[in-house]
Amino acid sequence: MFRLSIVSPARVLYDKEVKSLIAPGSEGYLGVLSDHAPLITSLAAGKITIKEGDDIERTAAVSGGFLEVSDNVATILADSVEFAEEIDVGRAKSAFERAKQRLGLQSPDLDLTRARAALKRAENRLKIAGGKT
């Protein structure tokens, strides 16, 4: 067991002892168990999977951030993060449609990187919320 805290500017989402953690590192998904070597990595948008016990599993959508592990303490600094069951599917869906539409328009003042990032975020949230229900 090790301590996991997930914080975002909006709130402290999680602060508990957990068994394992799977996080979307910028170089690919990575798993953390207790006594993991010290690690600092940036996170991409994706799914966080937390195992609290043998059969208690929680998933959360993260839009990017950082993860530090040291001394059996894992800290996730997330830009924004939500548990799967909290995601407002309707809102995520409309954000997804909006982002897609914006990319399709190809107007000259379109910020491509931002629009793509928005699309990816919305897609990620939809996927995680959908996987739960």
Binding site: G25, E27, L30, A37, P38, T41, S70
Partner: peptide, 10 residues
């Protein structure tokens, strides 16, 4: 922390 060997990604 300085003594520790951190893994950095990337």
């Amino acid at each position: 922390h300085s003594a520790k060997e951190y893994i950095f990604e990337p």
